[in-house]
């Protein structure tokens, strides 16, 4: 009898703690939403849809965040928001940051600015909690297990020889920096991106962004998984 009461009390206590944590998390997310609406929406789109035409893509100042909770890893967001660094070497849209000298296009590096957020730790946590609520319900979770073993050499061959990914994305392979610059730098993608989102993005880039310059390429589920594992191993 006594032990039953004890179990019941413990259950009530744990439930209360759980509800308290949820309430605290919700409060933090609300605080984060207020910060985002005050500081971030002049550059970021947090409600969708993505631009439907090239003119809209050219006007976009920063990546869309209306599916940030599906795309990013929370721990990375918390850290990055305190000290942002550019992720796309040629800016969010490369055409806005080009100069041509002697017939060669170059990145106009003075025009590529990092996100000016530089939040305090408490603000970064709140903003991350809010961004993680912006999820796309159609994206399947649990597709990619980042700990699954794979052949790095085979994956890099797929990434750079059988498919054109390396033409636009920079990666590390055998301690060498390799690849193009018009797409996001993937050298820290394993910390930054949700592996399931990487898989979904490869599957259909235009679903996320109708006028992204990343082409949709048909491939087997196994190849898509291998690419997602390779990208997620970049740290």
């Amino acid at each position: 009898m006594r032990s039953r009461r004890s179990i019941l009390l413990r259950g009530v206590l744990l439930g209360a703690i759980g509800l308290g944590l949820i309430a605290r998390h919700d409060l933090r997310a609300q605080e984060g939403e207020a910060i985002v609406k005050r500081q971030c929406v002049t550059c970021h789109n947090i409600s969708g849809p993505a631009p439907q035409d090239v003119a809209g893509v050219l006007r976009r100042k920063a990546p869309d965040l209306f599916y940030a909770g599906s795309k990013f890893q929370r721990a990375w967001l918390v850290k990055w928001l305190q000290q942002p660094t550019p992720i796309r070497q040629a800016g969010p849209m490369f055409l806005n940051h080009l100069v041509t000298r002697n017939g060669k296009d170059k990145i106009n590096e003075s025009s590529v600015k990092p996100c000016p957020s530089r939040l305090y730790p408490r603000q970064a946590t709140a903003v991350s909690d809010f961004l993680m609520t912006l999820r796309n319900p159609a994206m399947k979770a649990g597709i990619i297990a980042p700990s699954k073993p794979f052949s790095d050499a085979k994956a890099f061959r797929l990434f750079s020889k059988q498919l054109p990914c390396n033409g636009c994305h920079t990666v590390n392979f055998k301690n060498r920096k390799l690849g193009g610059v018009s797409g996001p730098d993937l050298r820290s993608a394993g910390l930054r991106l949700n592996p399931d989102w990487v898989y979904a993005r490869i599957q259909n880039p235009q679903y996320w962004d109708p006028r992204t310059w990343m082409p949709r390429i048909e491939m087997s589920r196994e190849k898509r998984e291998l690419l997602a594992l390779f990208v997620s191993s970049q740290r």
Partner: peptide
Amino acid sequence: CVQCHGTQGNGEGINQTHG
């Protein structure tokens, strides 16, 4: 196309000149 083939179409896009 410009990202690789360049704004002038001469093959000197940023993925070539930087990558």
